[in-house]
């Protein structure tokens, strides 16, 4: 750090990290707004950002309820995926036999399109909300399984020798070596998986197509499209996007909290 020399604006950390992406966002919104207004595009074809915001404010009570329902499904699915994903990963590293017999079926979860299995799950599971949660968990679980398994195996062989030489037990090696080594991989898995949980929750609800008590944002979008209420579709879409970004930032924050002091991926740039 040389505080005596004034860096140009472009070189300053806060500008690169926050101001420049915000500037791009504002610019895009302005172009969007101007294009809609100047060409007098009707609201029912393509609304301007201000129209969307107005709709959001007007429809807030219904939309926030739907958001709550989608968020609940997302978080439950995410928790389920973390639980099962890490559980399976721990199981896989116990023996090659278990890993080789089960891993192909874990891949099955990954390669099957959720839209194709969702109707089946929705028929099999009575409660709609539970069915949606299961669908979302099914697509969110794979990154956690594969990343955590990789992480638990990515142990410095020198350290492993050191543990063995000091006659460390299985539990000691797991707790003091394998779990900390796996943490960066696990957290990378979480970042992917939280987004997938949200996608799963929305896609499953599209397939389920049911309303009633547990109507989520996907249902709102479907309803709005039936009614050709385009601004409302955009408003619901906006809420989904904001939720996704929020979840991602939360996971990135968790990574920084847990890894910031030692792992390259989460360290501040030092230049």
């Amino acid at each position: 750090m040389r505080p005596s020399i004034k860096k140009p604006l472009m070189g300053q950390e806060w500008f690169v990290r926050f101001a420049s992406p915000a500037l791009v966002g504002v610019l895009l919104l302005a172009v969007w707004q101007a294009a809609c207004r100047m060409n007098e595009v009707p609201v029912y074809l393509f609304p301007a950002p201000t129209d969307i915001m107005a709709t959001l404010a007007r429809e807030w009570p219904a939309l926030i309820g739907a958001l709550g329902s989608t968020l609940a499904v997302t978080l439950k699915a995410f928790a389920l995926a973390v639980l099962f994903g890490t559980g399976l990963a721990f199981l896989f590293v116990q023996s090659r036999f278990i890993e080789f017999s089960l891993f192909p079926y874990a891949i099955l979860l990954q390669v099957t399109p959720i839209a194709a299995v969702a109707p089946l799950i929705i028929i099999l599971v009575k409660d709609t909300s539970t069915a949606l949660t299961v669908c979302a968990a099914v697509i969110a679980v794979f990154p956690i399984i594969s990343n955590t398994t990789l992480g638990l195996k990515s142990v410095d062989p020198g350290l492993l020798s050191f543990f063995r030489m000091n006659k460390a037990g299985r539990l000691q090696t797991l707790w003091r070596l394998r779990i900390p080594s796996a943490l960066p991989f696990f957290l990378a898995g979480l970042r992917i998986s939280c987004g997938l949980s949200l996608i799963g929750a929305v896609v499953a609800e599209f397939v389920a197509g049911t309303g009633g008590r547990s109507a989520g944002l996907a249902y709102e979008i479907l309803q709005s499209s039936f009614q050709l209420d385009i601004p409302r579709m955009f408003a619901a879409l906006f809420l989904i996007t904001v939720t996704g970004i929020g979840l991602f930032l939360l996971m990135a924050g968790l990574s920084r909290l847990l890894l910031g002091h030692w792992h390259e991926s989460a360290m501040e740039s030092e230049s």
Binding site: D156, G158, L159, S161, M165, P180, L183, H263
Partner: peptide
């Protein structure tokens, strides 16, 4: 008995 490896092999965390 103690062993010192070619690399420091420390736990980075």
């Amino acid at each position: 008995l103690a062993f010192v490896f070619q690399d420091p092999t420390l736990m980075p965390w």
